[in-house]
Every structure is written in C-alpha cells, then in structure tokens.
Design a protein around this nucleic acid. Structure first.
Lengths: 237, 237
DNA sequence: AATCTTTTTGTCTTTATGTCACTAAGTGCT
DNA sequence: AGCACTTAGTGACATAAAGACAAAAAGATT
C-alpha cells in the first residue's frame, strides 16, 4: 500500500460515517393478544416518546449486529429471546433529525412468562398491543419498523410455525392455532391447520395433557431443529 | 507505509463507528445463463480479487441506502436497474480485516441488452456465471452475499414473476419459463407455469409475435404495477 | 347418568397442480 | 403444393392439498 492509497481510504473513513443503531421488535403473546415491547425514550431526540428497544452498535462489546440486538434486549428484559430474525435496514438523511442515520431492524419472539417480571420492574418499558401502538406517536420511524416486522411475522404464520416461539416451551395445538389467528388477523380452519402441522413433523408429542373445561389437549414442544426448519405449507384460510 | 502501520492508524480513527458499505448483486440473463456483475478490486484490502459492485455510503451524495446502491451500480453499468431489493445486512468485527464493518446487501435485476456496452468498455468489470463465481475466491464475504441473493431470487421464481426483470421489456413465455428454470435449477411443467402466470394477470399481451424456427410466440410485457404485485402461486415442479 | 365443553378425527367437496398427448402456426425442403 | 420439422399453446384427466362441517372422544359439572 502506498501513501496515496492510504490517504484515499483514510479520508473516506474520516468523512462522517453514518450512525448505526439496531432496533428490535420483540413480540409476545399475552391475554390472547399479540404485544410488542416498547420503551420510553429518556434522551433527545424524541425524548418522552415510546420507541423500540435498541441503540448504537458498540464496537468493543459487540462482535456482530445480533450481539447488539441481544445486548439491548437483555438490558430491558434480562433474557435472550429464543428467536431472532433480521427484518430490514433503513438508512437515510431524514429519519433522525441529528444526522444521516442507519438502523438495522430485528424481530424477536419470546414467551411472556419468560420475561414478565423483568419488564414490569422497570417502568420505562412495557408491553403494548399493536392497536395501542398504532394509536400513539412513536419515536423516529419505529411505527414503520413495527409494521414491517408484523407483516413478516404474518407471512411466517402462513407457512411456518415460528410463531410458536411466543409460547412457552410446551403448548397445545389450540393455543398455537389461536396465536396464528391473532397474528394473521382471521380465524383458521381447525382441520387444515392441524393437518399441515402434522405433515410438517416439527412438533414432539410430550405425552402430557392439559385440560381446561373440556377434553384435555395434548402438550407439544418444538423439535430442536426449529427456527430454520419450521416450514409448513401455505395457509390462507 | 506498511500494512501494520496502516491498520493501526486506520483503527484509531475508526474507533467508535463501524464502516458502512452497500454491495449489490446485479443479476442478468445471457446466453441461457444467469450471471452476476463482478468487479476487480483496485484497492486494499483484497486488491486484485473479484468482488461485488459497491462501496461506502457517501453522506453528501446519497439521501438513502438505495441511492448508494444505485450510484455504485450506475458507475459500473451506466444504467439504473428496474428492480432493486434489499437482501440483508451483515455486520461484524471480522469480515473486514481493517475494522468492524457493516454491509447492506442489495439484489438487482437488469436485462443484459441494457448495459452490455458499458460493462464491456471497462475491463475491471465483467459478467460471471454463478458456477464461475463459486470456483474463485471472492473479496470479503461476497460469496455468501451472492448465495443469499441467489437463494432469495430462487424463492421469488417460485411464487412471483420478478425474474422477468432480467429480460428486456418484451419477452415470450417460453423465454420467461427458461429464466425461471435456470434460476431454480430444474425444469418446469409448461402447462403449470402458464396457468399460474395467466391467473396472476400480471402480463400484458402486446399483440406482437416473435418466431424462431417453429410457431411464433406471443410477446408480453409486465403490467406497470409490477415489482410489488408480481405474486403468483406456489410452484414446485 | 345426563349435559356441557373443548379436543381430535372422518369424510366429502372444492381447488390447485402434475402429466402428457394433441392441436396450432410457423419454417424450409423437394 | 405437400411434407417433414420445430416450437408455441391447449385439452383433459389424475393426483394432491385445502376447505367445510359433522361426528366422536375425553374430560368437568350437576
């Protein structure tokens, strides 16, 4: 490398690089509803508004972007979600009034039981339903990020069982079906749903049952290879 | 200046913000094959290796990440591709030996006719087939980016007609089917393919015909709303 | 035991796709 | 003109997946 080459690269770096943050849309299922974790912004800009849990990449603490996402989520919930997926990246000169800004948006799923206590203990973070979220003004372009994450989750609900990650380790098929229905926004045909899931062979029958009222439902858990291989067939009604 | 000195100075400067680049996998269809545009790196690191067209975000020139992608592509091809889609973002401390680095990867499609001349005029850029690409060592993690973009395009070929963007404005159904076959890597049933496309109502019959040898084929073009609404049904054989 | 509730299965209908042969519309050759 | 050859496009039946809905199973309650 000669001096000219060095200067070229050095100056490229020296000119302002954009700020890079990572924001996560953490979904859970509670009280028959889909909810997302929101935090009240403590700092300028958009101080006081609700926004997504996230923050800047820390080059010392984080080895990867996923590390950043998980670190920021753990800070608010104390736990590491079992499912994390990148949604997309927005970068432009107007989303943050301070400067050119980039955010890498992730979606994460977790069972409500697993982080309930932690979230309630800090009162700057709380679970909001998607309806509640869409009726208030959020920080930055976080509304759009949430919409995109929800849209992606909807798609997943149509041809995979990744929505199972918003449930605890063991769950019943009626529970899972209701989760899918809430995510998709319409009711599903019981038989079709079960057929697909059976054919996909992604669940393990734990042998246990759980009943509330009527016939007890079989408890299932996800096979260990879930997350990547959770694909089932298409599903429209 | 030697490499060690460079790295030290560079990293000192780059202490708290990661570098952000945008790389694009530009696909086209030529000589019955799917090809990607590769450029020979002129600078350290990985100088001399083939890599994806791309570069750092320029806060003055670019208003958005797409601007960066298009600017860098236009520099090599002289044209703006009709289809651009974000694939995903990689960011970690080891993909670039200089420093923590992020790249936002895009996929783009263009008809070979529309940028042939420009690409040939500069000999640091050329079209390579996916086979050729996988048999040489590429810069950074560009092989993985290409694989991911190809994988995504495969999916699109199964349930949409976005692959039509690698063809010129007017094309025949047999041509389109062959593009899909090349992308997916296996042959498709003529009847099924046509049925799906017909039902999707995404093409316009131009009235014109084009023949080579046998019966002339009808020339179609994409409806203006293509890109977003190019979805057809699932397609396996 | 009768009834209610919720889970789970049986089965017929509808829809989408696979398969493959057949027709259609050109070219070039004799 | 007639024929063989080539590629485009369609018809028709077989198979497979999904929708609809009723019936059965397994528990709780009275």
């Amino acid at each position: 490398m000669n001096e000219a080459e060095f200067l070229q690269q050095y100056n490229q770096k020296a000119f302002d690089t954009p700020n890079v943050s990572v924001d996560s849309v953490l979904f859970t299922y509670h009280e028959q509803q889909l909810k997302v974790l929101m935090v009240n912004r403590a700092n300028y800009p958009d101080k006081g508004l609700w926004g997504l849990p996230g923050g800047f990449v820390n080059l010392q603490k984080d080895k990867t972007l996923e590390d950043t996402a998980l670190r920021k989520l753990a800070k608010k919930t104390g736990v590491k979600p079992p499912y994390l997926e990148q949604i997309y990246t927005v970068g432009n000169d107007h989303r943050d009034k301070r400067a050119w800004s980039i955010t890498v948006c992730y979606s994460a799923l977790i069972a409500h039981q697993y982080c309930k206590v932690q979230v309630n203990s800090v009162n700057d973070a709380k679970w909001l339903t998607l309806d509640e979220v869409s009726n208030i003004t959020l920080a930055f372009d976080h509304q759009q990020l949430i919409d995109a994450a929800h849209q992606r989750l909807k798609q997943k609900a149509l041809y995979s069982i990744v929505p199972a990650f918003v449930l605890p380790e063991q769950f019943t098929l009626p529970e899972l079906q209701h989760v899918h229905e809430v995510i998709i926004g319409k009711s599903l045909q019981k038989k079709s749903f079960r057929r697909r899931i059976e054919q996909a062979e992604l669940l393990i029958d734990t042998g246990e049952k759980r009943g509330e009222g009527g016939r007890p439902a079989t408890l299932y858990k996800l096979k260990s290879n879930a997350g990547q291989h959770t694909f089932i067939r298409n599903l429209e009604n």
